Simulated scan of single mutants.
Amino acid sequence: MTFASFSPETPGPRTDADLIGSNRRFYDALWRDAKLFAPERFNTWPLVAELAATSTSRLEVAPGLRPRLPLVDTQFVDLSRPALTELGRHGAHVAQAMIGALPFVDNSFDFVCAFDILEHVVNDEGALGELARVARPGASLLLSVPLHPSAWNAFDEFVGHYRRYEPAAVTELLARHGFVIERSAVYGMQPKSSKLLDLGQWFLTHRRARAMWWYNKVFMPLGVRFQKPLALKDGFVAGPEVDEILLVCRKRA
């Protein structure tokens, strides 16, 4: 994994080893005591079902135990061994790898997903290049990223983000790797209250086991239950108030 540049609003630069280490610690602890949420429970499912109906080979990168693609006959890649073990128990194909070095030959998949991933790696050019390499011409790509570097906060730091994106930078990055944005929607379930975020981070730091229990047993189920339906629009629609965006892309032939 690697990233190109970071915005001046983020803290000082961190290395691949820093990010991989912090992500592994956070997400291994999270997934070790978590249950898998079925893809059908997320507001992305109607869109995913639409795209999956015309696909023959699917890849989702780093889903943890929150996969969005159908489990059976989908290839999943993650760094977390607890997550991979649980996904495999539910009939998924799994491989332990990083987004910057996918263990597949060129043009392997016609439907690729990477939710909440690019902001965690240092070399987004290399990461997206790998997604483009394994995607067939005409393949669908679902991608989500946080927006607006000026909105950087302690939550970004805590969960191992490396950057937030300006909308124009996302569009240019995708175009360099042969992807065209077809539709987009506001996405994500990050709490809006800074006090709630501060409280959650304190418990994750000082009472991790208890915090993980509340997240997995209470907050995550409630968040999923009260998700709003995705409001997809043509093109890239993201105003300054949009914290995170879901992009539906197509790889050029």
Rank of each mutant, 00 (worst) to 15 (best):
R183L: 10
A114G: 07
E244G: 12
N153S: 14
D124I: 12
F158P: 01
R208S: 01
E241L: 13
G21N: 09
L222T: 10
G239Y: 04
F226W: 15
S193C: 14
L196Q: 13
P70C: 08
F155L: 14
G126K: 02
S184W: 00
V94F: 04
P240A: 15
C249Q: 05
A168T: 12
V170T: 10
L232K: 02
G64S: 09
P70Y: 04
E125D: 15
F158Q: 03
L71T: 00
E60W: 00
W213D: 01
A101H: 15
M212Q: 07
V186L: 12
P70M: 06
F109D: 00
A253Y: 10
A38D: 13
F179E: 08
Q190C: 09
F42A: 07
P67F: 08
G91Y: 12
R225D: 02
L19P: 05
N123F: 09
T74Q: 03
S5K: 13
F203Y: 02
P191K: 08
V242K: 03
V237A: 09
A95F: 11
N107W: 10
D198C: 03
V224C: 01
R24Y: 04
A95I: 06
T171D: 14
F37Q: 11
A114S: 09
E157N: 11
R133P: 13
D110E: 04
V242D: 06
I99A: 11
E130G: 02
Q75M: 14
A101S: 15
G178S: 09
R81D: 15
L36V: 06
E119T: 08
A34Q: 02
A4I: 10
P63M: 11
Q190M: 15
E40A: 15
G91E: 06
P63D: 06
R250I: 11
Y165Q: 08
E130A: 02
A101V: 06
L128H: 02
G21M: 10
P39C: 13
N43V: 11
N216S: 04
S5R: 13
L118T: 02
P46L: 09
N153A: 14
L87M: 05
F37R: 10
N43K: 11
A151I: 05
I117V: 15
S144Q: 04
V145Y: 00
R183A: 08
L51G: 07
P221S: 12
S5F: 08
A29D: 03
F76I: 08
H90Y: 12
L65P: 00
V224M: 05
L47F: 03
R25C: 07
K35Y: 00
A38Q: 11
G188L: 06
N107S: 14
E244I: 01
K251L: 13
R210L: 00
G12V: 07
S80E: 03
F42Q: 09
G223F: 06
T171K: 14
S150L: 09
L196I: 09
P82Q: 10
L30M: 08
V237H: 07
F6G: 13
T54C: 13
D18Q: 14
